[in-house]
Design a protein around this nucleic acid. Structure first.
Lengths: 337, 337
DNA sequence: GTGAAAGCGCTAACAA
DNA sequence: TTGTTAGCGCTTTCAC
């Protein structure tokens, strides 16, 4: 029964089967050196037949390269880090690099532990992802391999991070509302302690300012929940009855806002236009009507982080800093003119 | 600037620093053999100072074990496979096993490619996760390492799969509705081509049958969307006006149903009780009212799959088959008595 | 109690 | 054109 105890085929066995020396077999398989076509074919055939797969560990030991990187996430592989991971895996996979995944569950002890383990496995680099854009402690000072932060940033200025351009994304949203003729735009968003909430509110203000428009009241900071969206909309309608557009800090909030607007008899987008943030499909599409929203391009963030990592691994001199990736606006019913 | 080109510390350097032979250093570090306490301490100190981390590749080559497994997902790390992966990582991480992640994007070519790559890296086993419970083609016949399927199953009876007990989960839900005095229970669910939808509908019928109750109409098969939930609820209210409970095939559907019920002036749960499926927090909690729903215990599924894999790796004889993990019922406002 | 040497699977430089 | 050999970093006998 123990088909699994059969050891993997080694190049020694291939060589024996082909009736050549082990060195010759290696050359044949790697297309190196000068050897007779017939010999090469014989070796290839034997390798094929035995299902030979060169042992990457042995190769790695020899070359001093493992073609692996570690992916450390603090988001429990959540909604934000998954697309980032996919983008990263995409960029890495193309380069034949395999990815070790580690979820720290937001536990620093666990994180330290994982980093140690990754280094023992001789990964060539580490990508750290998160769900919040605020600076977090560096994953380790002076590590022997390059590190990049994606969808989170390090407090250490020498580290390199890739995060979304929340400011620009907000401006896209508000400019769109203004362009469709709205003049009384309100803003309902998440907790003020979140950098993303503050930055988005800033973009909201900037976009209004550049158009010489004024906001429908101060930004309303609350929670990242539908429930808060409902409450916030109530407050907004009470204090700014003439509001004709709401820019929300998340799709969940926007959904709550949409529900309250409907309950209060305001038509979307006819009476009030609505823009969300995140482009979280199940939320944005399930909403009535479907939401115009800002897409974070998370996949691009992951891809950019991975590409940077590959560059540094490849020898490009490392430089610290923060790279902000542009957001894009996805148009749906909630702002149709 | 190239802090990254500095090669990793080897045991040779540790030995030199401690003034002992390389073999002695190894013994000291691994607590093997008999050596003087002072010597051991000296080696440990040197290792500490140099930040020595034994090269797992070299160890693996020697032991013939890599302490790695591959995690192949076809769900683009989506809503279902992530909790499964976390559970698996949990079980594996405890055993010091690292996980290579691979996302196939549902592409068989890519899948084959990844499996090859994993085998070349000498993973000791492979976990395949998915988003649908229907049987899928085996990942490869006669692989040299054990494979388990989690949240998906293989068409090959010799393969081992772990999936949720959809039937039992449905019965939990319906029994609960009956226990709270409901007598006219309807069922709105996803497309009939999904095994999960068919099995849940079966559980619905079974639970009613065991109580001698009759359904409020035939199950309504549609889509896995809120929009369908809204439509389905309309149909149900029209054809079964005396319905006093709805069991839904997903939380998204249940949300749509909840909206229509509200629009039609039916109070939840007073007039109509509502149960969802999946316990997808943002949906179930954002709903008005929050949804009673069936939890798939995805983490447990991942943990079970990983544990089984570890067992087989550890020598327990492999057995094909399907293991169905129990679901649990999460009580919230939508069925409060 | 410690060191020397063999070998895990592979590649590359050198000999034949 | 092919074979031999050294060695990647480590552990483990087996001498000393």
């Amino acid at each position: 029964m123990s088909e699994f105890s059969r050891r993997a085929v080694t190049i020694r066995e291939v060589a024996a089967a082909a009736g050549v020396s082990i060195g010759t077999a290696s050359k044949a398989l790697n297309g190196q050196g000068r050897l007779r076509e017939e010999t090469r074919a014989r070796v290839m055939a034997a390798a094929e037949r035995l299902e030979f797969r060169p042992n990457k560990l042995a190769q790695g030991l020899l070359h001093g390269r493992t073609f692996t990187v570690g992916l450390v996430t603090c988001d429990s592989f959540g909604r934000f880090s998954i697309p980032v991971m996919l983008g990263a895996e995409d960029a890495l996979g193309a380069g034949q690099i395999s990815v070790f995944m580690c979820d720290t569950r937001d536990d620093p002890i666990r994180e330290r532990h994982y980093v140690e383990r990754l280094l023992a496995r001789r990964v060539e680099g580490i990508i750290v992802t998160g769900r919040r854009t605020e600076p977090r402690p560096s994953i380790g000072a002076d590590l022997p391999v390059p590190v990049v932060y994606a969808m989170t940033q390090s407090t250490e200025p020498a580290d390199f991070s890739v995060i979304p351009d929340d400011l620009g994304g907000s401006m896209l949203a508000v400019r769109h509302l203004l362009a469709t003729g709205r003049r009384r735009v309100g803003h309902i968003t998440g907790p003020q302690r979140f950098l993303a909430a503050r930055t988005r509110a800033e973009g909201f203000a900037d976009a209004l300012a550049e158009a010489g428009a004024t906001a429908a009241g101060d930004p309303l900071f609350g929670e990242w929940s539908e429930e808060w969206g409902r409450q916030g909309a109530d407050i907004l309608l009470r204090t700014q009855p003439d509001v004709d557009a709401v820019f929300c800090g998340s799709d969940q909030i926007a959904r709550g806002v949409a529900e309250t607007l409907r309950d209060r008899g305001r038509r979307i987008p006819d009476d009030v236009a609505l823009v969300g943030f995140d482009n979280w499909a199940p939320m944005a599409l399930g909403s009535r009507p479907p939401l115009t929203t800002v897409d974070l391009n998370l996949g691009e963030i992951g891809r950019a982080a991975a590409t940077h990592l590959l560059d540094v691994i490849g020898g490009v001199p490392h430089q610290g800093g923060v790279r902000r990736m542009p957001c894009s606006l996805v148009l749906r019913e909630s702002t149709r003119v």
